[in-house]
């Protein structure tokens, strides 16, 4: 059982969280100008980093999405913070 710290609620069990995707992805727009490759990259492209990783998570209990930096091998969590008011 991993323990993540929601920036709003504090440390909670991993079962309260839902993975939202890697951080830093920008939705390509307007659609009419987006190539098929670019769109496929937005939908499916992943860094899937082995090691330090920046991710968006949802705390299901409070409904807030936030940024988490963690290590995908050791599972160490470096930091969590609200995405509010900044670019993730």
């Amino acid at each position: 059982m991993q323990c993540f710290t929601c920036p709003f609620c504090g440390p909670r069990d991993e079962t309260e969280f839902f993975y939202g995707g890697e951080a830093g992805k920008e939705r390509p727009e307007p659609s009419a100008e987006v190539t098929a490759e670019r769109w496929a990259e937005w939908l499916y492209g992943e860094t899937n980093s082995k090691g330090p990783s920046r991710e968006i998570w949802l705390h299901l209990t409070c409904g807030e999405f936030f940024l988490m930096e963690r290590h995908t091998v050791t599972h160490e969590v470096f930091a969590t913070r609200a995405t509010r008011g900044e670019e993730a």
Binding site: F18, G20, L58, F65, R84
Partner: peptide, 20 residues
Amino acid sequence: VVMRLEEWRQDRFDPGRVVI
């Protein structure tokens, strides 16, 4: 549906100007 609405509310809109 709630999760999808929340995701885009927080990502794309001003969360202070729309709530779910």
